[in-house]
């Protein structure tokens, strides 16, 4: 479904990704692990066309994202859900409105927004927080809202960048369970994290990157660094 082919990405002098080749299959649950600064977020940015690689190809269903037209990027992003490392919820909008926002900007009809948003809030277990603003929610709840927003387009691919950062282990585990559930429902999931215990207990594919290079790719893997 996604294929990285010799992808290199630099920011000025910093080499964030170096000759990365990686194939991710449909319905897979892939944990992307590595120390801070290893290049996990960069990899995610490349998939959604937020950054462009210096060289190499990034194929999503045979479309080269590295060469996609700027005007096509919004439509790519409607097929891919992203949970950002810094969450990026709108402060002056409620949980419901934050989720609805993603549907609004892509031109969804009002009644389908009214139908879908509560369903998704229920799925992430926050139907009772619909009217809460981000500052009225806990870290875990905000993460769930961010996941809900990422799911609202019914994406084929969910990219979750450190969705358990700053969460205690119980909350973090709940988030992982949610992602596993989403994966089971037929969405490919890429989870970028450095939460060792969580990754180890998931027992799915683990790709380890170190200083921009893939050093390990294990099925049913462990976080070994």
């Amino acid at each position: 479904m996604i294929k990285f082919d010799e992808v290199t990405k630099t920011y000025g002098k910093v080499i964030a990704l170096k000759n990365v080749s990686l194939e991710i299959h449909k319905d897979e649950f892939l944990s992307l692990v590595g120390q801070s600064g290893a290049g996990k977020s960069t990899l995610i940015s490349l998939i959604i066309g937020e950054e462009r690689p210096d060289s190499g190809r990034i194929l999503i269903d045979d479309i080269d994202v590295a060469r996609i037209r700027r005007t096509d990027i919004p439509f790519l992003r409607r097929k891919i859900g992203v949970v950002f490392q810094d969450i990026k919820l709108l402060r002056n909008r409620t949980a419901y409105e934050n989720v609805a926002f993603a549907m609004e900007v892509s031109g969804e009809k009002n009644n389908s927004i009214r139908k879908e948003v509560p369903k998704i809030l229920e799925m992430v277990g926050l139907e009772d927080k619909a009217k809460a603003f981000p500052h009225e929610m806990s870290g875990g709840e905000k993460q769930r809202i961010a996941i809900a927003r990422a799911l609202v387009h019914k994406p084929v691919l969910l990219l979750a960048d450190e969705p358990t950062g700053n969460l205690d282990s119980i909350n973090a585990w709940d988030i992982i369970q949610l992602l596993l559930k989403i994966n089971k429902n037929g969405t490919t999931v890429i989870l970028a994290t450095h939460a060792k215990d969580l990754v180890n207990s998931v027992k799915k594919r683990v790709v380890t990157i170190e200083k921009g290079e893939i050093v390990l790719d294990q099925q049913k893997g462990k976080y070994v660094l």
């Binding site: 919004p74 900007v105 892509s106 031109g107």
Partner: peptide, 16 residues
């Protein structure tokens, strides 16, 4: 600017 960034990231077209 925050709102614009998020719009962009969740798939709003430039003209939108």
């Amino acid at each position: 600017r925050d709102e614009v960034e998020i719009m962009r990231l969740v798939g709003a077209t430039n003209w939108y």
